[in-house]
Amino acid sequence: MIRVEALTKTFVTGRGRQRVEVHAVRGVSFTAPDGAITALLGPNGAGKTTTLRMLSTLVKPDSGTAQVGGADVAREPTTVKATLGVLSDARGLYTRLTARENIRYYGELRGLGGDALEARITALATLLEFEPLLERRTEGFSTGEKLKVALARALVHDPQHVLLDEPTNGLDVVSARALRRMLSRLREAGKCLVFSSHVMQEVEALCERVVVVAKGQTLHEGTIAELKARTAQASLEDAFVELAFGQGV
């Protein structure tokens, strides 16, 4: 389970007169239970990516707390990282290494190895439908192929908690469907998934719970049905727009 309470983060750029403060996150709270996919829904610049980065321990929160599987992200980053698999916005691969070598590198960094690791890599490639690419260098892979390798890399240690930052960006229909099947499978296995998106159909098709974030704050947390009921809108998109941007947009 992931629990986020009143997280804030301000970025400062420049000095003196050119000092600019950007309040990226002003108070985000939500709970993501195990065995469910929780969507972080919000317009561009809402603070979704920063929230996920704080959960992945690479950005320190200014205030508020976040716990991943009971471990605090600020105080126990190593414990958090151990149970976390992250597909971030940056998903660069090593182009001179094969897909298998890319995934193996992360597995070995996490203390895995031997036949078990190789079997796990092959299983992930089969699930994500890129087995034929496994022994090829990743140079020249398509966006979808790269994403699959990056996802396999993030899941190599079978993490209990999975964060995905706009995973379907730039994917074609076939790849997006393969990704969705994978996420459903992870949910059935009892994993706790949080994924950020601004694609409504996807959220509707996949997620039980939505957290609407705008201007760095949580505006709604609950099921999709609750969100629709609250705004008296029939579609998720209308409900989201009304909540995030106000009426009449």
Binding site: A82, L84, A154
Partner: peptide, 11 residues
């Protein structure tokens, strides 16, 4: 290449 961020997400 954007591989530093995911790399640092490993423990």
């Amino acid at each position: 290449r954007g591989s530093l961020e995911p790399l640092l997400m490993n423990p």
